[in-house]
Design a protein around this nucleic acid. Structure first.
Lengths: 236, 236
DNA sequence: TGGACGTTTCGGCCGGCGCCGAAACGCCGG
DNA sequence: CCGGCGTTTCGGCGCCGGCCGAAACGTCCA
Protein backbone atom coordinates (compact mmCIF):
# COMPACT_ATOMS: atom_id res chain seq x y z
CA UNK A 1 0.00 0.00 0.00
CA UNK A 2 2.88 2.34 0.72
CA UNK A 3 4.25 1.83 -2.77
CA UNK A 4 0.84 2.50 -4.20
CA UNK A 5 0.56 5.65 -2.13
CA UNK A 6 3.91 6.80 -3.37
CA UNK A 7 2.91 6.21 -6.98
CA UNK A 8 -0.41 7.93 -6.46
CA UNK A 9 1.24 10.89 -4.73
CA UNK A 10 3.69 11.30 -7.57
CA UNK A 11 0.96 11.03 -10.17
CA UNK A 12 -1.16 13.60 -8.36
CA UNK A 13 1.82 15.92 -7.97
CA UNK A 14 2.58 15.75 -11.66
CA UNK A 15 -1.02 16.38 -12.60
CA UNK A 16 -1.22 19.27 -10.13
CA UNK A 17 1.37 21.10 -12.17
CA UNK A 18 -0.90 20.99 -15.21
CA UNK A 19 -4.10 21.45 -13.23
CA UNK A 20 -3.97 25.22 -13.24
CA UNK A 21 -5.29 27.19 -16.19
CA UNK A 22 -2.41 29.66 -16.19
CA UNK A 23 0.23 26.94 -16.11
CA UNK A 24 -1.68 24.95 -18.72
CA UNK A 25 -1.68 28.01 -21.00
CA UNK A 26 2.10 28.25 -20.57
CA UNK A 27 2.61 24.61 -21.44
CA UNK A 28 0.44 24.91 -24.52
CA UNK A 29 2.29 28.03 -25.63
CA UNK A 30 5.63 26.31 -25.15
CA UNK A 31 4.47 23.52 -27.44
CA UNK A 32 5.89 25.64 -30.24
CA UNK A 33 9.24 24.20 -29.17
CA UNK A 34 10.91 27.52 -28.55
CA UNK A 35 12.01 29.37 -25.42
CA UNK A 36 9.82 32.15 -24.02
CA UNK A 37 10.71 34.79 -21.48
CA UNK A 38 8.78 35.06 -18.23
CA UNK A 39 7.31 38.37 -19.30
CA UNK A 40 6.06 37.06 -22.62
CA UNK A 41 4.30 34.22 -20.88
CA UNK A 42 2.80 36.57 -18.29
CA UNK A 43 1.31 38.76 -21.02
CA UNK A 44 0.17 35.70 -22.95
CA UNK A 45 -1.56 34.22 -19.92
CA UNK A 46 -2.93 37.54 -18.74
CA UNK A 47 -1.58 37.51 -15.19
CA UNK A 48 0.86 39.68 -13.24
CA UNK A 49 4.56 38.95 -13.79
CA UNK A 50 4.92 38.12 -10.11
CA UNK A 51 2.23 35.48 -10.40
CA UNK A 52 3.81 33.91 -13.41
CA UNK A 53 7.22 33.87 -11.81
CA UNK A 54 5.90 31.56 -9.12
CA UNK A 55 4.27 29.33 -11.71
CA UNK A 56 7.54 29.01 -13.56
CA UNK A 57 9.27 28.10 -10.33
CA UNK A 58 6.87 25.22 -9.81
CA UNK A 59 7.07 23.98 -13.37
CA UNK A 60 10.86 24.04 -13.35
CA UNK A 61 11.05 22.37 -9.95
CA UNK A 62 8.66 19.72 -11.21
CA UNK A 63 10.91 18.99 -14.14
CA UNK A 64 8.44 20.01 -16.83
CA UNK A 65 10.39 23.07 -17.90
CA UNK A 66 14.05 23.82 -18.42
CA UNK A 67 15.28 27.33 -17.85
CA UNK A 68 18.17 29.43 -18.97
CA UNK A 69 19.00 32.81 -17.56
CA UNK A 70 20.44 35.45 -19.83
CA UNK A 71 21.06 38.80 -18.22
CA UNK A 72 17.81 40.05 -16.82
CA UNK A 73 15.79 37.60 -18.87
CA UNK A 74 14.61 34.16 -17.86
CA UNK A 75 14.02 31.87 -20.79
CA UNK A 76 12.00 28.69 -20.29
CA UNK A 77 11.17 25.84 -22.64
CA UNK A 78 9.70 22.37 -22.33
CA UNK A 79 12.22 20.12 -20.62
CA UNK A 80 12.42 17.39 -23.30
CA UNK A 81 10.49 15.56 -26.00
CA UNK A 82 9.02 13.29 -23.38
CA UNK A 83 7.38 16.21 -21.63
CA UNK A 84 6.22 17.68 -24.90
CA UNK A 85 4.64 14.38 -25.83
CA UNK A 86 2.84 14.26 -22.51
CA UNK A 87 1.38 17.72 -22.95
CA UNK A 88 0.37 16.86 -26.50
CA UNK A 89 -1.35 13.69 -25.34
CA UNK A 90 -3.21 15.47 -22.59
CA UNK A 91 -4.27 18.25 -24.94
CA UNK A 92 -5.42 15.73 -27.53
CA UNK A 93 -7.58 14.04 -24.92
CA UNK A 94 -9.31 17.32 -24.22
CA UNK A 95 -10.06 18.90 -27.59
CA UNK A 96 -12.30 16.19 -29.05
CA UNK A 97 -14.80 17.03 -26.32
CA UNK A 98 -14.71 20.81 -26.18
CA UNK A 99 -15.13 21.85 -29.84
CA UNK A 100 -13.55 25.25 -29.33
CA UNK A 101 -14.54 27.84 -31.89
CA UNK A 102 -12.70 31.08 -32.62
CA UNK A 103 -14.73 34.15 -31.82
CA UNK A 104 -13.07 37.14 -33.39
CA UNK A 105 -11.94 37.55 -36.98
CA UNK A 106 -8.33 37.80 -35.89
CA UNK A 107 -8.54 34.52 -34.00
CA UNK A 108 -10.33 32.99 -36.92
CA UNK A 109 -7.61 33.82 -39.43
CA UNK A 110 -4.90 32.86 -36.96
CA UNK A 111 -6.80 29.64 -36.37
CA UNK A 112 -7.04 28.82 -40.05
CA UNK A 113 -3.32 29.44 -40.46
CA UNK A 114 -2.71 27.07 -37.58
CA UNK A 115 -5.04 24.52 -39.14
CA UNK A 116 -3.19 24.79 -42.44
CA UNK A 117 0.23 24.08 -41.00
CA UNK A 118 2.04 24.44 -37.70
CA UNK A 119 4.78 22.98 -35.59
CA UNK A 120 3.83 20.57 -32.85
CA UNK A 121 6.85 20.94 -30.55
CA UNK A 122 9.46 19.64 -33.00
CA UNK A 123 7.47 18.17 -35.90
CA UNK A 124 4.90 19.37 -38.41
CA UNK A 125 1.15 19.21 -37.80
CA UNK A 126 -2.07 20.56 -39.23
CA UNK A 127 -3.10 19.81 -42.82
CA UNK A 128 0.58 20.06 -43.80
CA UNK A 129 1.53 17.34 -41.32
CA UNK A 130 -1.38 15.17 -42.41
CA UNK A 131 -0.52 15.59 -46.09
CA UNK A 132 3.05 14.49 -45.43
CA UNK A 133 1.94 11.53 -43.33
CA UNK A 134 -0.56 10.46 -45.99
CA UNK A 135 2.03 10.78 -48.74
CA UNK A 136 4.51 8.73 -46.70
CA UNK A 137 1.90 6.03 -46.22
CA UNK A 138 0.74 5.95 -49.85
CA UNK A 139 4.29 5.66 -51.11
CA UNK A 140 5.11 2.82 -48.75
CA UNK A 141 7.52 4.83 -46.64
CA UNK A 142 5.40 4.59 -43.51
CA UNK A 143 3.33 1.71 -42.30
CA UNK A 144 0.25 2.45 -40.22
CA UNK A 145 -1.82 -0.71 -40.61
CA UNK A 146 0.16 -2.77 -38.13
CA UNK A 147 1.33 -0.02 -35.79
CA UNK A 148 3.30 3.06 -36.72
CA UNK A 149 6.77 2.59 -38.19
CA UNK A 150 8.93 3.62 -41.10
CA UNK A 151 9.59 0.99 -43.71
CA UNK A 152 12.98 0.17 -45.24
CA UNK A 153 11.92 2.28 -48.20
CA UNK A 154 11.23 5.06 -45.74
CA UNK A 155 14.76 4.84 -44.37
CA UNK A 156 16.13 4.98 -47.89
CA UNK A 157 13.96 8.01 -48.66
CA UNK A 158 15.54 9.98 -45.85
CA UNK A 159 18.97 9.05 -47.13
CA UNK A 160 18.11 10.00 -50.73
CA UNK A 161 16.60 13.31 -49.63
CA UNK A 162 19.72 14.11 -47.67
CA UNK A 163 17.88 14.46 -44.39
CA UNK A 164 20.01 13.16 -41.51
CA UNK A 165 18.29 10.68 -39.20
CA UNK A 166 19.62 10.09 -35.72
CA UNK A 167 19.02 6.39 -35.22
CA UNK A 168 21.24 5.98 -32.21
CA UNK A 169 19.02 7.88 -29.82
CA UNK A 170 16.75 6.09 -27.43
CA UNK A 171 13.96 8.13 -28.89
CA UNK A 172 11.65 6.14 -31.19
CA UNK A 173 12.18 6.85 -34.86
CA UNK A 174 8.51 7.08 -35.73
CA UNK A 175 5.64 7.83 -33.40
CA UNK A 176 2.02 8.80 -33.96
CA UNK A 177 0.88 12.17 -32.63
CA UNK A 178 -2.82 12.95 -32.67
CA UNK A 179 -3.61 16.16 -34.53
CA UNK A 180 -6.08 18.35 -32.69
CA UNK A 181 -7.41 20.08 -35.78
CA UNK A 182 -7.49 17.13 -38.17
CA UNK A 183 -8.10 14.53 -35.44
CA UNK A 184 -5.87 12.06 -37.22
CA UNK A 185 -2.41 10.79 -36.33
CA UNK A 186 0.59 12.37 -38.00
CA UNK A 187 4.30 11.59 -38.06
CA UNK A 188 6.21 12.46 -34.89
CA UNK A 189 9.31 11.03 -33.24
CA UNK A 190 12.88 11.41 -34.47
CA UNK A 191 11.83 11.07 -38.12
CA UNK A 192 9.15 13.74 -37.78
CA UNK A 193 11.55 16.08 -36.01
CA UNK A 194 14.28 15.59 -38.62
CA UNK A 195 11.86 16.34 -41.42
CA UNK A 196 10.57 19.47 -39.70
CA UNK A 197 14.07 20.75 -39.00
CA UNK A 198 15.08 20.16 -42.60
CA UNK A 199 11.93 21.84 -43.89
CA UNK A 200 12.69 24.97 -41.89
CA UNK A 201 16.43 24.92 -42.65
CA UNK A 202 15.93 24.40 -46.37
CA UNK A 203 13.27 27.09 -46.55
CA UNK A 204 10.46 24.71 -47.43
CA UNK A 205 8.37 26.53 -44.88
CA UNK A 206 8.71 29.61 -42.70
CA UNK A 207 7.14 30.56 -39.40
CA UNK A 208 4.34 33.10 -39.48
CA UNK A 209 4.93 35.83 -36.94
CA UNK A 210 5.86 34.55 -33.53
CA UNK A 211 3.30 31.81 -33.44
CA UNK A 212 3.36 28.09 -34.11
CA UNK A 213 1.82 28.49 -37.55
CA UNK A 214 4.01 27.92 -40.61
CA UNK A 215 3.54 28.71 -44.29
CA UNK A 216 4.82 26.58 -47.17
CA UNK A 217 7.04 28.56 -49.56
CA UNK A 218 7.18 28.19 -53.33
CA UNK A 219 10.41 26.14 -53.21
CA UNK A 220 8.77 24.10 -50.45
CA UNK A 221 5.81 23.31 -52.69
CA UNK A 222 8.15 22.16 -55.44
CA UNK A 223 10.17 20.00 -53.04
CA UNK A 224 7.11 18.39 -51.52
CA UNK A 225 5.75 17.70 -54.98
CA UNK A 226 8.98 16.23 -56.31
CA UNK A 227 9.90 14.18 -53.26
CA UNK A 228 6.47 13.08 -52.07
CA UNK A 229 4.01 13.84 -54.84
CA UNK A 230 2.10 16.26 -52.67
CA UNK A 231 -0.02 18.59 -54.78
CA UNK A 232 -0.77 22.18 -53.99
CA UNK A 233 -4.40 21.36 -53.32
CA UNK A 234 -3.46 19.25 -50.29
CA UNK A 235 -1.80 22.21 -48.64
CA UNK A 236 -4.52 24.85 -48.59
CA UNK B 1 -6.56 34.12 -27.08
CA UNK B 2 -10.07 32.89 -26.34
CA UNK B 3 -9.39 29.65 -28.13
CA UNK B 4 -6.16 29.25 -26.22
CA UNK B 5 -7.99 29.95 -23.00
CA UNK B 6 -10.54 27.34 -23.84
CA UNK B 7 -7.85 24.78 -24.58
CA UNK B 8 -5.95 25.69 -21.45
CA UNK B 9 -9.09 25.50 -19.35
CA UNK B 10 -9.90 22.08 -20.69
CA UNK B 11 -6.38 20.86 -20.16
CA UNK B 12 -6.36 22.18 -16.60
CA UNK B 13 -9.75 20.64 -15.90
CA UNK B 14 -8.60 17.24 -17.12
CA UNK B 15 -5.42 17.42 -15.08
CA UNK B 16 -7.39 18.54 -12.02
CA UNK B 17 -9.17 15.21 -12.05
CA UNK B 18 -5.87 13.40 -11.67
CA UNK B 19 -4.32 16.01 -9.39
CA UNK B 20 -5.71 14.53 -6.21
CA UNK B 21 -3.93 11.70 -4.47
CA UNK B 22 -7.10 9.80 -3.68
CA UNK B 23 -8.36 9.99 -7.26
CA UNK B 24 -4.92 9.13 -8.56
CA UNK B 25 -4.89 6.03 -6.38
CA UNK B 26 -8.26 5.03 -7.85
CA UNK B 27 -7.05 5.47 -11.40
CA UNK B 28 -3.92 3.43 -10.73
CA UNK B 29 -5.98 0.69 -9.11
CA UNK B 30 -8.35 0.63 -12.06
CA UNK B 31 -5.39 0.08 -14.38
CA UNK B 32 -5.96 -3.60 -13.74
CA UNK B 33 -8.68 -3.27 -16.36
CA UNK B 34 -11.47 -4.52 -14.17
CA UNK B 35 -14.46 -2.90 -12.48
CA UNK B 36 -14.26 -2.01 -8.80
CA UNK B 37 -17.08 -1.12 -6.43
CA UNK B 38 -17.11 2.23 -4.67
CA UNK B 39 -16.53 0.54 -1.31
CA UNK B 40 -13.52 -1.39 -2.51
CA UNK B 41 -11.93 1.77 -3.80
CA UNK B 42 -12.72 3.61 -0.56
CA UNK B 43 -10.95 0.94 1.49
CA UNK B 44 -8.11 0.83 -1.00
CA UNK B 45 -7.58 4.59 -0.86
CA UNK B 46 -8.15 4.81 2.87
CA UNK B 47 -10.93 7.41 2.88
CA UNK B 48 -14.57 7.45 3.98
CA UNK B 49 -17.10 6.01 1.52
CA UNK B 50 -18.82 9.36 1.35
CA UNK B 51 -15.60 11.02 0.28
CA UNK B 52 -14.94 8.49 -2.39
CA UNK B 53 -18.47 8.74 -3.71
CA UNK B 54 -17.84 12.36 -4.56
CA UNK B 55 -14.56 11.53 -6.22
CA UNK B 56 -16.26 8.95 -8.40
CA UNK B 57 -18.86 11.49 -9.35
CA UNK B 58 -16.18 13.83 -10.63
CA UNK B 59 -14.26 11.17 -12.48
CA UNK B 60 -17.38 9.89 -14.20
CA UNK B 61 -18.56 13.38 -15.06
CA UNK B 62 -15.11 14.11 -16.47
CA UNK B 63 -15.33 11.09 -18.72
CA UNK B 64 -12.40 9.24 -17.21
CA UNK B 65 -14.53 6.49 -15.69
CA UNK B 66 -17.52 4.52 -16.88
CA UNK B 67 -19.98 3.29 -14.32
CA UNK B 68 -22.50 0.54 -14.10
CA UNK B 69 -24.97 0.18 -11.28
CA UNK B 70 -25.99 -3.25 -10.14
CA UNK B 71 -28.38 -3.30 -7.22
CA UNK B 72 -26.81 -1.50 -4.35
CA UNK B 73 -23.36 -1.66 -5.91
CA UNK B 74 -21.73 0.92 -8.12
CA UNK B 75 -19.11 -0.55 -10.39
CA UNK B 76 -16.62 1.77 -12.07
CA UNK B 77 -13.90 1.11 -14.60
CA UNK B 78 -11.66 3.18 -16.84
CA UNK B 79 -13.75 4.65 -19.62
CA UNK B 80 -11.76 3.29 -22.58
CA UNK B 81 -8.32 2.29 -23.78
CA UNK B 82 -7.56 5.90 -24.54
CA UNK B 83 -8.02 6.87 -20.93
CA UNK B 84 -6.04 3.88 -19.72
CA UNK B 85 -3.20 4.86 -22.01
CA UNK B 86 -3.23 8.38 -20.65
CA UNK B 87 -3.00 7.18 -17.06
CA UNK B 88 -0.22 4.78 -18.02
CA UNK B 89 1.71 7.55 -19.73
CA UNK B 90 1.35 9.88 -16.78
CA UNK B 91 2.36 7.18 -14.33
CA UNK B 92 5.37 6.28 -16.48
CA UNK B 93 6.49 9.89 -16.43
CA UNK B 94 6.46 9.84 -12.64
CA UNK B 95 8.10 6.59 -11.60
CA UNK B 96 11.53 7.12 -13.17
CA UNK B 97 12.02 10.03 -10.78
CA UNK B 98 10.62 8.69 -7.54
CA UNK B 99 12.32 5.28 -7.18
CA UNK B 100 9.66 3.89 -4.88
CA UNK B 101 10.82 1.09 -2.67
CA UNK B 102 8.58 -1.41 -0.88
CA UNK B 103 8.86 -1.15 2.88
CA UNK B 104 7.23 -4.17 4.41
CA UNK B 105 7.79 -7.81 3.56
CA UNK B 106 4.25 -8.18 2.36
CA UNK B 107 4.63 -5.28 -0.01
CA UNK B 108 7.95 -6.64 -1.13
CA UNK B 109 6.57 -10.04 -2.10
CA UNK B 110 3.53 -8.46 -3.68
CA UNK B 111 5.88 -6.13 -5.51
CA UNK B 112 8.04 -8.93 -6.83
CA UNK B 113 4.97 -10.79 -8.05
CA UNK B 114 3.93 -7.59 -9.84
CA UNK B 115 7.42 -7.22 -11.30
CA UNK B 116 7.32 -10.82 -12.53
CA UNK B 117 4.09 -10.47 -14.45
CA UNK B 118 0.97 -8.34 -14.36
CA UNK B 119 -1.74 -6.88 -16.49
CA UNK B 120 -1.42 -3.29 -17.61
CA UNK B 121 -5.08 -2.43 -18.27
CA UNK B 122 -5.65 -4.97 -21.04
CA UNK B 123 -2.21 -6.26 -21.95
CA UNK B 124 0.67 -8.03 -20.21
CA UNK B 125 3.52 -6.19 -18.49
CA UNK B 126 6.37 -6.86 -16.10
CA UNK B 127 9.10 -9.32 -16.97
CA UNK B 128 6.47 -11.49 -18.65
CA UNK B 129 5.45 -8.67 -20.96
CA UNK B 130 9.07 -7.81 -21.71
CA UNK B 131 9.92 -11.45 -22.44
CA UNK B 132 7.06 -11.67 -24.91
CA UNK B 133 7.99 -8.39 -26.56
CA UNK B 134 11.63 -9.44 -26.84
CA UNK B 135 10.66 -12.81 -28.28
CA UNK B 136 8.39 -11.11 -30.81
CA UNK B 137 11.21 -8.82 -31.85
CA UNK B 138 13.87 -11.53 -32.09
CA UNK B 139 11.62 -13.71 -34.22
CA UNK B 140 10.84 -10.87 -36.61
CA UNK B 141 7.19 -10.61 -35.57
CA UNK B 142 7.58 -7.10 -34.21
CA UNK B 143 9.70 -4.28 -35.49
CA UNK B 144 11.00 -1.71 -33.02
CA UNK B 145 13.93 -0.17 -34.86
CA UNK B 146 11.85 2.08 -37.10
CA UNK B 147 8.90 2.67 -34.81
CA UNK B 148 6.69 0.06 -33.24
CA UNK B 149 4.68 -2.20 -35.55
CA UNK B 150 3.87 -5.83 -36.20
CA UNK B 151 5.45 -7.34 -39.31
CA UNK B 152 3.65 -9.49 -41.85
CA UNK B 153 5.18 -12.48 -40.11
CA UNK B 154 3.66 -11.16 -36.92
CA UNK B 155 0.21 -11.08 -38.48
CA UNK B 156 0.66 -14.67 -39.69
CA UNK B 157 1.79 -15.72 -36.21
CA UNK B 158 -1.49 -14.53 -34.70
CA UNK B 159 -3.38 -16.47 -37.33
CA UNK B 160 -1.33 -19.63 -36.80
CA UNK B 161 -1.71 -19.40 -33.03
CA UNK B 162 -5.46 -19.05 -33.39
CA UNK B 163 -5.58 -15.72 -31.62
CA UNK B 164 -8.21 -13.45 -33.17
CA UNK B 165 -7.05 -9.95 -34.07
CA UNK B 166 -9.56 -7.17 -34.53
CA UNK B 167 -8.04 -5.15 -37.35
CA UNK B 168 -11.13 -3.14 -38.15
CA UNK B 169 -11.03 -1.05 -35.01
CA UNK B 170 -9.69 2.46 -35.04
CA UNK B 171 -7.38 1.35 -32.29
CA UNK B 172 -3.77 0.87 -33.40
CA UNK B 173 -2.74 -2.74 -33.73
CA UNK B 174 0.60 -2.34 -31.98
CA UNK B 175 1.63 0.35 -29.58
CA UNK B 176 4.53 0.73 -27.16
CA UNK B 177 3.72 1.00 -23.47
CA UNK B 178 6.51 1.93 -21.09
CA UNK B 179 6.93 -0.60 -18.31
CA UNK B 180 7.39 1.02 -14.90
CA UNK B 181 9.29 -1.88 -13.39
CA UNK B 182 11.45 -2.80 -16.37
CA UNK B 183 11.59 0.72 -17.82
CA UNK B 184 11.40 -0.66 -21.32
CA UNK B 185 8.57 -0.58 -23.84
CA UNK B 186 6.35 -3.61 -24.18
CA UNK B 187 3.62 -4.63 -26.59
CA UNK B 188 0.30 -2.84 -26.11
CA UNK B 189 -2.52 -1.94 -28.48
CA UNK B 190 -5.01 -4.33 -30.04
CA UNK B 191 -2.36 -7.01 -30.53
CA UNK B 192 -1.22 -6.82 -26.92
CA UNK B 193 -4.79 -6.94 -25.67
CA UNK B 194 -5.67 -9.93 -27.86
CA UNK B 195 -2.64 -11.83 -26.62
CA UNK B 196 -3.43 -11.06 -22.99
CA UNK B 197 -7.06 -12.11 -23.38
CA UNK B 198 -6.03 -15.35 -25.04
CA UNK B 199 -3.42 -16.04 -22.36
CA UNK B 200 -6.02 -15.72 -19.63
CA UNK B 201 -8.72 -17.61 -21.55
CA UNK B 202 -6.41 -20.46 -22.47
CA UNK B 203 -5.05 -20.71 -18.95
CA UNK B 204 -1.53 -19.67 -19.88
CA UNK B 205 -1.59 -17.44 -16.85
CA UNK B 206 -3.93 -16.83 -13.91
CA UNK B 207 -4.48 -13.79 -11.76
CA UNK B 208 -3.01 -13.85 -8.26
CA UNK B 209 -5.60 -12.83 -5.67
CA UNK B 210 -7.50 -9.73 -6.60
CA UNK B 211 -4.52 -7.76 -7.77
CA UNK B 212 -3.01 -7.02 -11.14
CA UNK B 213 -0.28 -9.63 -10.71
CA UNK B 214 -0.47 -12.80 -12.81
CA UNK B 215 1.34 -16.12 -12.62
CA UNK B 216 2.34 -18.25 -15.60
CA UNK B 217 0.96 -21.80 -15.37
CA UNK B 218 2.72 -24.99 -16.46
CA UNK B 219 0.70 -25.19 -19.72
CA UNK B 220 1.46 -21.52 -20.19
CA UNK B 221 5.18 -22.15 -19.95
CA UNK B 222 4.89 -24.90 -22.56
CA UNK B 223 2.87 -22.71 -24.90
CA UNK B 224 5.23 -19.76 -24.59
CA UNK B 225 8.18 -22.04 -25.23
CA UNK B 226 6.64 -23.74 -28.26
CA UNK B 227 5.16 -20.64 -29.87
CA UNK B 228 7.79 -18.05 -29.00
CA UNK B 229 10.83 -19.92 -27.73
CA UNK B 230 10.59 -18.28 -24.33
CA UNK B 231 12.53 -20.28 -21.75
CA UNK B 232 11.57 -20.67 -18.12
CA UNK B 233 14.52 -18.54 -17.03
CA UNK B 234 13.06 -15.46 -18.71
CA UNK B 235 9.92 -15.69 -16.59
CA UNK B 236 11.25 -15.74 -13.04
C1' DT C 1 -41.65 -6.72 6.58
C1' DG C 2 -37.73 -5.47 9.14
C1' DG C 3 -32.86 -5.20 9.53
C1' DA C 4 -28.25 -5.06 7.41
C1' DC C 5 -25.45 -2.89 4.22
C1' DG C 6 -23.63 -0.20 0.18
C1' DT C 7 -24.10 4.26 -1.39
C1' DT C 8 -25.28 9.19 -1.51
C1' DT C 9 -26.30 13.89 0.18
C1' DC C 10 -25.44 17.63 3.19
C1' DG C 11 -23.07 20.75 6.66
C1' DG C 12 -19.11 22.27 8.43
C1' DC C 13 -14.24 22.57 8.98
C1' DC C 14 -9.81 23.64 7.35
C1' DG C 15 -5.72 23.76 4.60
C1' DG C 16 -3.78 24.80 0.20
C1' DC C 17 -3.03 27.82 -3.37
C1' DG C 18 -3.78 31.33 -7.06
C1' DC C 19 -4.09 36.11 -7.31
C1' DC C 20 -2.46 40.87 -6.72
C1' DG C 21 0.38 45.02 -5.39
C1' DA C 22 4.36 46.89 -3.21
C1' DA C 23 8.93 46.71 -2.72
C1' DA C 24 13.48 44.82 -3.51
C1' DC C 25 16.95 42.89 -6.57
C1' DG C 26 20.00 42.79 -10.88
C1' DC C 27 21.23 43.77 -15.30
C1' DC C 28 21.57 46.92 -18.93
C1' DG C 29 22.13 51.32 -21.43
C1' DG C 30 22.88 56.13 -21.48
C1' DC D 1 26.76 56.15 -11.93
C1' DC D 2 22.01 56.53 -12.35
C1' DG D 3 17.50 55.47 -14.17
C1' DG D 4 14.66 51.95 -16.65
C1' DC D 5 13.07 47.49 -16.90
C1' DG D 6 12.57 42.44 -16.33
C1' DT D 7 12.21 39.57 -12.58
C1' DT D 8 11.57 37.97 -7.82
C1' DT D 9 10.02 38.00 -2.94
C1' DC D 10 6.63 38.82 0.43
C1' DG D 11 2.26 39.76 2.76
C1' DG D 12 -2.49 39.47 2.53
C1' DC D 13 -6.87 38.19 0.59
C1' DG D 14 -10.31 35.03 -0.87
C1' DC D 15 -11.95 30.92 -2.82
C1' DC D 16 -11.84 26.30 -4.12
C1' DG D 17 -12.01 21.72 -2.74
C1' DG D 18 -10.92 17.54 0.10
C1' DC D 19 -12.13 15.53 4.40
C1' DC D 20 -15.32 13.72 7.84
C1' DG D 21 -19.69 12.36 10.33
C1' DA D 22 -24.62 12.17 10.46
C1' DA D 23 -28.50 11.10 8.24
C1' DA D 24 -31.23 9.61 4.28
C1' DC D 25 -32.00 6.47 0.45
C1' DG D 26 -32.31 2.15 -1.92
C1' DT D 27 -31.38 -2.75 -2.40
C1' DC D 28 -30.91 -7.31 -0.78
C1' DC D 29 -31.85 -11.06 2.37
C1' DA D 30 -33.94 -13.51 6.06
Amino acid sequence: MATKDSRAAGLAALASLVADETRAACLLALLDGRAWTAGELARHAGVAPSTLSEHLGRLVAGGLLAQERQGRHRYVRLADTRTAQLVEDLAAQVTPAGTARPRTLRESSAGSAMARGRTCYDHLAGRLGIAITDAFTERGLLRQDTGFALTDAGLRWYGAAGIPLDRSARRPLARACLDWTERRPHLAGAAGAALCRHALDAGWCVRIGSERAVRVTAPGERALHELLGIGREALC
